[in-house]
Amino acid sequence: MSEEKQTLVDIWGDHVKIKDLLIAMAICITFTLGGYIIAPGEAPQPLVFGLVGGVIGFIISSIVIKPKRNVKVEGEDEDGSNDYHAASNS
């Protein structure tokens, strides 16, 4: 358990897991560069494909990888309408 928790490092101002970072980079680079290379048309089409690929890669990595942040909300109106508490325990 403690081993699982203490595997993060600080890079660019936030905590990340190295394995997840490498996965995210691999996904994004594959989609961006892949999009650029497979685009059939003339410039600027490869760039458009590449950028779309980058966005797709970003969305996929956001789904696959969980942020390493423990978010707690404290405040005046605890009416249960927000679910931050529930999610932060996962």
Partner: peptide, 19 residues
């Protein structure tokens, strides 16, 4: 904070730079 993993942001910029 809850839904955008830092890894994905770095990954996106790495992808842009490589391309």
């Amino acid at each position: 904070f809850k839904y955008i993993p830092h890894e994905a942001l770095i990954g996106l910029f790495a992808g842009l730079v490589v391309m």
